[in-house]
Each structure stands twice: as structure tokens, then as C-alpha cells.
Design a protein around this nucleic acid. Structure first.
Length: 218
DNA sequence: AACCAGGAGAGAG
DNA sequence: CTCTCTCATGGT
């Protein structure tokens, strides 16, 4: 099966490399992964700029900061009280146990899952984002767009999270860079073409998407 | 003024 | 254990 490989090629041909998750440090990616939950990225960017002003874009900085100081800076990202306390407790544990996040790069993926998976504020998708974008582990991130798109393509039997992950990993040969951009492309495609009143004629997947086929037939 | 955003967690079955 | 229901806010 090479379904995801073919799908990725179509997307990559259309979008190119989206250079997702632009960040200067891994601390920033980790913090961003919490901020972006249920929030558009442009509002996350504002929050990140605010954090930068107070030197709060580092885990040690966050760990020492007051929760209110953090929440004050991340208001634009919504759910700021909840996110501020979660970011702080996560940062505190990392700093206390490892000093800095890059000291965790030598851990096995399984150990990383054990550590981050147990923290409040880190569910399946955020965990996978951290594994892929911070620790460069081969992971297929399955989000709402991914489910929606895959289920509309010609292999609906695959539209179960675990199968999508498995098949994508094998089709894409566990390539980190491809997995990163594949997820980015799926989100972009989802935002542009799989919402209300979609214009499927412009969609790069219109030839393989059942939804587009149904819409275009009289 | 609904509706969405690059979900998580608790509760039900 | 999986499926469902609820929650938490700013921006458009």
C-alpha cells in the first residue's frame, strides 16, 4: 500500500514545503503546542510575541514565572488561565527533572510518551506533535482534518486513527521531514477546501475525493 | 451573533 | 476500554 505516499505527493506538489512550526527553539515549540489547542495559529503568534517580551519563551523562564504573569501574556490564545497553569506545571517538571528539554533528546520514544502522556494538558494530538516536532520521532499526527480528509478519500475503511498512523508511517517510510510536511499539508488543505461550502473544483485532491465527486455530480 | 480555532478531560455505556 | 458530552475563551 502506497496510498499515503501518493496522497502526499499530490499535496506536496500543490503546497510545497510549508515549513511548519517555525520556531527558534524547542522550548518555543513545546509552549506553542499547548497554546495552539482549540486556537488559530495567528492568535498563538500574538501570544508568543507577548511571551517574548517578558523572556517567557523558555521553559526555565516559565517555571520561575507567576501563573498570572503568564496568563496575562497569552490572553490572545484563549483559555489563558487553563493554558497558563498547564504550561507552567509542564515546564516545571521538565526543568526539575531534566534541566532543559534538549537533555531529553536521548530518551527513547517510549519514555517520552510515558513522561509527556501523563501530564495534564497533553492529550493524544499534542503528545504526537511534541514527539514529531520537538523530538523528531516518526509519528503521524491525526487531527480532525486528517480524519475528515482520509475518510473522504477512496479508502474509508482506513479512517480509524490507529490505521491512519500505521499506514502513513509505513507508506512514508518513517521519514521525519515528510511526516512533518504531510501533517502541515493536510491541515492547510482542510482549512482551504474541507469546510462549509467548499470549492472542490480547486482542490488538488478532487480526483480522488468522494466528497468532491458527490458534489460535482448532478 | 453564531461559529470556529493546528483539543483535553471527565463521564457514560 | 471506547464512545460521547462538556468545558474553556478570543477572534471573526
Amino acid at each position: 500500500m502506497k496510498d499515503h505516499f501518493l496522497l502526499y505527493n499530490k499535496l506536496n506538489e500543490y503546497f510545497g514545503d510549508l515549513h511548519w512550526w517555525p520556531a527558534e527553539t524547542n522550548d518555543e515549540i513545546l509552549i506553542g503546542s499547548i497554546l495552539t489547542q482549540n486556537t488559530s495559529w495567528k492568535n498563538v503568534e500574538k501570544a508568543i510575541l507577548e511571551l517574548k517580551k517578558d523572556n517567557l519563551l523558555s521553559l526555565p523562564g516559565i517555571a520561575e514565572a507567576d501563573v498570572d504573569a503568564i496568563s496575562l501574556r497569552i490572553r490572545s490564545a484563549g483559555f489563558f488561565r487553563q493554558k497558563a497553569s498547564r504550561i507552567k506545571s509542564i515546564a516545571t517538571r521538565i526543568v526539575d527533572q531534566y534541566g532543559r528539554i534538549d537533555a531529553m533528546q536521548s530518551l527513547t520514544t517510549q519514555d517520552l510518551v510515558g513522561f509527556f502522556g501523563g501530564l495534564k494538558g497533553i492529550g493524544q494530538e499534542t503528545l504526537d506533535s511534541i514527539l514529531l516536532y520537538v523530538f523528531n520521532r516518526p509519528v503521524m499526527i491525526v487531527d480532525t482534518y486528517t480524519r475528515r480528509i482520509i475518510s473522504r478519500i477512496n479508502y474509508p475503511e482506513e479512517a480509524v486513527d490507529e490505521k491512519i498512523m500505521e499506514n502513513a508511517l509505513s507508506d512514508l517510510r518513517h521519514s521525519i521531514s515528510v511526516l512533518k510536511n504531510y501533517h502541515a499539508c493536510l491541515v492547510e488543505l482542510g482549512k482551504r477546501f474541507c469546510r462549509k461550502s467548499p470549492d472542490c473544483t480547486e482542490c488538488p485532491l478532487n480526483s480522488v475525493c468522494n466528497y468532491a465527486i458527490v458534489l460535482s455530480s448532478p
